[in-house]
Design a protein around this nucleic acid. Structure first.
Length: 589
RNA sequence: GGGGGUGUAGCUCAGUCGGUCAGAGCGCUGGCCUGUCAAGCCAGAGGUCGCGGGUUCGAGCCCCGUCACUCCCGCCA
C-alpha cells in the first residue's frame, strides 16, 4: 500500500479517514473532478489509493481559491490543508474517505494537462484501441489499477510461497536458440555472427531442465515467454509464466506442491480453494466433457448411448457402431421448446466441428416428441435413451455417431454452446487436474507423430516398449491445471535419460543428425548426471484474468498489444533505419 | 489464411424507405451560483459520417474494394 514516505506528501489523500481529523496534511495527486459553486469549490483529488474531497473556501485562502478556479481535470497538484469532519448531511457513503474532507489553505500546480482523450471514470466504457494508445491515462482508472494491483499481489504471493518451499529464483536467457518443435519463434538477427539469429524463448523449458542437471533442485522464475502466433483474447505474443521445476519428484509431488501454493495464491483474490483438487485423467474428461479443459461448474455431461443403440435399425447409428464408432449424447435440459432454426444452428456448429451431423430429439414441455430421426428408433431404444439421459419433458437430446474422438470433441463444443444459450450460471470457481495425457498426437498434415505436451515429456515406464510400435497408445506423466474451463497451467515429468530422449525424438520423425544439431546440448546434459525431475508452468496472465473476472488478458497486462500484434502506444513494430539493417547483415547495399 | 461484428463530434451512441439528416447525452469553452460529490442553471464551440471508388437527380444509408479494432476457426509442443 502506498504511503507518504520519500515524497513531498505528508499523507496519502486516498487513505485519509475520520481518525485523521485535525491533522495538517500535504497531499499530491490528480484533479479528478471539480465542482465550482461560485463562492466555494470542491476538488476531488485522486491518487493511487483513491479520492478525497478538498474544499477551497476564499475565507481559508484567497490564493488557493483563485488557483482552484483555474484547475482542470487531470492537472497535477500539491495541496496543503487540514482534515476535518464533513458537515452534517454531507457525508458521501460511496467513498472510503466520504466522512471527511480537506480544507485547503495553500495549493500549487505541479503540472497542467490537456483535456484527456477520454474521461478517467470507471463508469464509461471506451474503445479499447483508444485506451491502449493512451494507456497511461487508462491506468489511472480504478478498474485498471485494481487489475494491476491484483497481479502484483498474486505475483508476490507466488514468490513468497515458492521461496518458503526452497525454490531458487533464477533468470534464464531471453536471447536464445530457435527450436524446431512448437510455436513460431520470434527471431533476432546477430550483428556479431553474420547470418545467424537468436530466438526469443517460447518458454524456459530447456534451461530449467539444465538447472536441474546443475543441481539446483528447485527452481522458479516469473518468466516472459514469446510466441509468434495469431492472437486471441487470452493470447498475446509475449506473456508471463510462473515457471517451476523440481528434482527427485514423482508427479504427485508436483501436484501437491502446486495445490498448496495455489491455495495460498488465490486467497489474494478472496477465493478459498478446496484441496486436494479433483484429478481426472485425460481419457475421463474427454469421455465426460469432450474437452481437455472442462468447465465443471455446470452439468450436461456426455453419455455413451452405444449400448442403447447396439441393435439399431437406424443406419446412421448402426453404421457408426459397425465401424468401431460410438453414439454419444447430451441432454440440454430446458431446451425442448427451441425452434428448428436454433437447433439447426447447433447442427451447423457440430458439422463445423467435424461431425457429419447432429441427431436431435426434442421433448416438448407438453409431452410431444419432435425429431427428424425418432421415427427410425424403436420403442425400447427410446426408453433406453430416456433412461440413460434422464429425459424429462422440456429436454432436448443431442447426439453424435462417429469415431470416439470425434463424437467427444463435437459434443464438447456443442455442450459449451448449449450452456451459453441456456445461460446456465457459471458462478464461483472450479479447479481440477487433468492427468495422463497421451504422449503423442498424430499430425495428419505433416504425416508424423508430434509431442502432445513437448518432446521432453516422460512416457509412462510401462509404455516405453510401445514408443515405436504403437505411439498413439503411449501415455505420459503429464498434468494440466484447469480452472473454470481455462488451461491455467501444465507440466510433466521430464525424460532424464539421453537414450530415451533420442528414442522419443526419433519417434517424432526427427532425423538423428538433426537431433544432434538441435538438441545435442540437452542430450549431452542428460548424459552427465541428470537427476529425475519434473515441473509445471502456470499462465500468470490467464490466472490473474480469471481471478479479476476479466475476459481478456489485455486487461491484466500494463501495456498489451492489439489483436494484430501492434502496440498502439509506441507504434511497435516499426521500420528501422537502413544503417541498423546493415549492422545486422540483413541489408548489404 | 478463413468467417462474424464494429467504424458518425474529444468520448458513448442514435440516425426509419436513399430526399431538413449532421443529431443526443457526456466532455470541452464562457457566464451565474457557498455544501456539492456523475453538482445545478444559461449560452457556445465542435463533423474528411474510417478511407477509395461506383450506382443515383440525390448516399451516413445501396454496391465493390480497402484499412483499423474486435470475437471465433485454423495456428498456439
Amino acid at each position: 500500500m502506498l504511503d507518504a514516505r520519500y515524497s513531498i506528501r505528508s499523507h496519502v489523500g486516498g487513505k485519509l479517514r475520520a481518525s485523521d481529523t485535525g491533522e495538517a496534511v500535504t497531499l499530491a495527486g490528480w484533479v479528478h473532478r471539480r465542482r465550482d459553486h461560485g463562492g466555494l469549490i470542491f476538488v476531488d483529488l485522486r491518487d493511487r489509493e483513491g479520492l478525497v474531497q478538498c474544499v477551497f473556501d476564499p475565507d481559508a485562502s484567497a490564493a488557493a481559491f483563485a488557483l482552484a478556479e483555474r484547475v482542470r481535470p487531470e492537472w497535477v497538484v500539491k495541496l496543503a490543508g487540514t482534515v476535518r469532519m464533513r458537515p452534517e448531511g454531507t457525508v458521501n457513503a460511496n467513498l472510503p474517505t466520504g466522512s471527511i474532507e480537506v480544507l485547503v489553505t495553500s495549493a500549487e500546480v505541479l503540472n497542467t494537462s490537456e483535456t484527456p482523450p477520454f474521461e478517467v471514470d470507471a463508469a464509461i466504457e471506451t474503445d479499447e484501441a483508444l485506451r491502449l494508445k493512451y494507456r497511461y491515462v487508462d491506468i489511472r482508472r480504478p478498474e485498471v489499477l485494481a487489475a494491476l494491483t491484483l497481479r502484483d499481489r498474486v505475483t508476490q504471493r507466488f514468490r513468497k510461497e515458492l521461496e518458503h518451499r526452497g525454490f531458487l529464483e533464477v533468470e534464464t536467457p531471453i536471447l536464445t536458440k530457435s527450436t524446431p518443435e512448437g510455436a513460431r519463434d520470434f527471431i533476432v538477427p546477430s550483428r556479431l555472427s553474420p547470418g545467424r539469429f537468436y530466438a526469443l524463448p517460447q518458454s524456459p523449458q530447456l534451461f530449467k531442465q539444465l538447472l536441474m542437471v546443475g543441481g539446483l533442485e528447485r527452481y522458479y522464475q516469473i518468466a516472459r515467454c514469446f510466441r509468434d502466433e495469431d492472437l486471441r483474447a487470452d493470447r498475446q505474443p509475449e506473456f508471463t509464466q510462473v515457471d517451476i521445476e523440481m528434482s527427485f519428484v514423482r508427479d504427485e509431488d508436483v501436484l501437491s506442491m502446486m495445490e498448496d501454493v495455489m491455495h495460498q495464491v488465490v486467497k489474494e483474490a478472496g477465493i478459498d480453494l478446496h484441496t486436494p483438487l479433483p484429478r481426472l485423467t485425460y481419457m475421463e474428461v474427454m469421455d465426460r466433457f469432450g474437452s481437455d479443459r472442462p468447465d465443471t461448474r455446470f452439468g450436461i455431461e456426455l453419455s455413451d448411448l452405444s449400448e442403447a443403440f447396439a441393435a439399431s435399425g437406424f443406419q446412421v447409428f448402426a453404421g457408426a457402431l459397425a465401424s468401431g464408432g460410438v453414439v454419444k449424447g447430451i441432454n440440454a435440459k430446458g431446451a425442448g421448446a427451441w425452434s428448428r432454426g436454433r437447433i439447426d444452428a447447433l447442427n451447423q456448429l457440430a458439422i463445423d466441428s467435424g461431425a457429419k451431423g447432429l441427431a436431435w430429439i426434442a421433448f416438448t414441455p407438453d409431452g410431444e416428441v419432435r425429431s427428424p430421426i425418432a421415427k427410425f428408433l424403436s420403442e425400447p431404444e427410446m426408453a433406453a435413451l430416456r433412461s440413460a439421459l434422464d429425459v424429462a419433458p422440456g429436454d432436448l437430446v443431442l447426439m453424435v455417431a462417429d469415431a470416439p474422438a470425434v463424437a467427444n470433441e463435437v459434443l464438447g463444443t456443442v455442450r459449451l454452446r448449449v450452456a451459453d444459450e441456456l445461460e446456465l450460471p457459471r458462478e464461483g470457481h472450479s479447479a481440477l487436474w487433468v492427468t495422463d495425457f497421451p504422449m503423442f498426437n498424430y499430425d495428419a498434415e505433416e504425416g508424423r507423430w508430434s509431442a502432445n505436451h513437448h518432446p521432453f515429456t516422460r512416457p509412462w515406464d510401462d509404455h516405453l516398449t510401445m514408443i515405436e510400435s504403437d505411439p498413439g497408445a503411449v501415455l505420459s506423466y503429464s498434468y494440466d491445471l484447469v480452472m473454470d474451463g481455462l488451461e491455467i497451467g501444465g507440466g510433466t515429468l521430464r525424460i532424464h535419460d539421453a537414450a530415451l530422449q533420442r528414442r522419443v525424438l526419433a519417434a517424432m520423425g526427427l532425423d538423428p543428425a538433426d537431433t544432434e544439431v538441435q538438441f545435442g546440448f540437452l542430450l549431452e546434459a542428460l548424459s552427465l548426471g541428470a537427476p529425475p525431475h519434473g515441473g509445471i508452468a502456470l499462465g500468470l496472465d490467464r490466472l490473474v484474468m480469471l481471478l479479476a473476472g476479466k475476459h481478456s488478458i489485455r486487461d491484466v497486462i500494463a501495456f498489451p498489444k492489439t489483436s494484430s500484434g501492434v502496440d498502439p502506444l509506441t507504434g511497435a513494430p516499426d521500420v528501422v533505419a537502413g544503417r541498423q539493417l546493415r549492422d545486422v547483415h540483413l541489408k548489404h547495399d
